[in-house]
Design a protein around this nucleic acid. Structure first.
Length: 323
DNA sequence: CGCGCGCTCTGAGGCTATAG
DNA sequence: CTATAGCCTCAGAGCGCGCG
């Protein structure tokens, strides 16, 4: 093969085609028109002496040759990017990029608005997209570069996934402000709920996979008790709304509970027993470890989390629910 | 003579419109 | 949806010319 015939732009086109499996979308991704990509694909076909992509309906199916180039091409482009980035100061003000994150609605509600506001001021060319946790397998999405980072409880991940802790996420119990059962029992806001009451009242569980039991049930099971989960919902926001309008309880991350109290007629109680305190971590592909824009946005997330006060919950309450 | 400047020509690769 | 046609732009090669 003749290296003279292969310019770097063709490699970018090939990479985009492998990602998008569409001439039109590949063009959109790298800022070329559809015909320009089509022509580039033709040149690639001649240079590499392979069809590379065969049209099947609306899908451009890669040939085995094209398939085999996916990883090496991506790695080569990353390396080139790295070479030209080093020594050059990274300036977020000029960055044109959309970052995609994934996590619970908790984050789309609480983290994303302040993060977006913060970033708008220093990097007007940056946009965000936030996908729901239910979207799927974190490792695969990171591998395919479909997400830049995932914000999740500790996960089993391959060694090419990097991560850093964001904050501890102890549980708080929320209930409607006018929950008559709790009122009658004379429990004040912020107090621990008696365990009999905790087990007697129905619960709403936030569950992305439809499971009807969570870590609270595991903790209860250890002390030989049970609660009744009568509603499982995929979003924390929906859990809070359900709690606000009924006699349900819900064990939710304390940070979320604090926010819910501000917008809904709910109050916080302490759990009557120890529930293991989960950590929330940020996960990303190790290939982005040293990439300046990625490193920058990760720092921005850490700073935003810090600014929200997610890291410094009231010490007593936190330790009170620790195992 | 050798170098630098500027003109012209050519081809690659972009675009839009349209055919397949 | 992709491929092709026709047109446009622009970078680079080639070449002539003037000057030191």
């Amino acid at each position: 093969m003749n290296l003279n015939a292969l310019d770097l732009n063709l490699v970018r086109v090939l990479d985009a085609l492998l990602r998008e499996r569409s001439v039109t979308r590949a063009g959109e991704q790298i800022g070329l028109s559809q015909p320009a990509v089509s022509a580039a694909l033709n040149r690639l076909r001649h240079v590499l002496n392979d069809q590379l992509f065969v049209r099947r309906g609306n899908d451009m199916v890669p040939t085995p040759r094209a398939e085999s180039l996916t990883e090496p091409v991506r790695a080569a482009l990353r390396e080139i990017e790295r070479v030209f980035q080093t020594g050059k100061d990274f300036d977020p003000a000029g960055l044109e990029r959309t970052f995609t994150f994934m996590g619970a609605d908790f984050f789309s509600m609480l983290l994303m608005p302040p993060l977006a506001a913060r970033i708008a001021a220093m990097a007007p060319g940056v946009s965000f997209r936030f996908l729901d946790s239910a979207r799927g397998d974190v490792s695969r999405l990171l591998q395919d570069d479909e997400i830049d980072a995932a914000l999740e409880r500790p996960l089993e991940v391959p060694d090419w996934v990097s991560s850093t802790p964001l904050f501890d996420s102890p549980f708080a119990i929320i209930a409607a402000r006018d929950n008559t059962t709790i009122k009658q029992a004379g429990i004040a806001d912020g107090e621990p709920l008696p365990i009999e009451l905790f087990c007697e009242l129905p619960h709403v569980l936030r569950s992305i996979d439809g499971s009807m039991s969570g870590s609270t049930d595991a903790a209860l099971d250890k002390i030989g008790l049970k609660r009744r989960v009568s509603l499982a919902l995929p979003h924390f926001q929906a859990v809070a709304l359900a709690v606000a309008s009924g006699n349900h309880l819900a064990a939710v991350p304390r940070q979320f509970a604090v926010a819910a109290v501000k917008s809904l007629p709910v109050v916080i109680y302490q759990p009557p027993f120890a529930i293991a305190v989960p950590e929330v971590r940020m996960y990303w592909h190790a290939r982005h470890d040293d990439e300046p824009p990625h490193r920058w946005i990760r720092n921005q997330i850490l700073e935003a989390v810090e600014a929200l006060g997610f890291r410094d919950l009231d010490g007593d309450e936190t330790t009170g629910s620790r195992t």
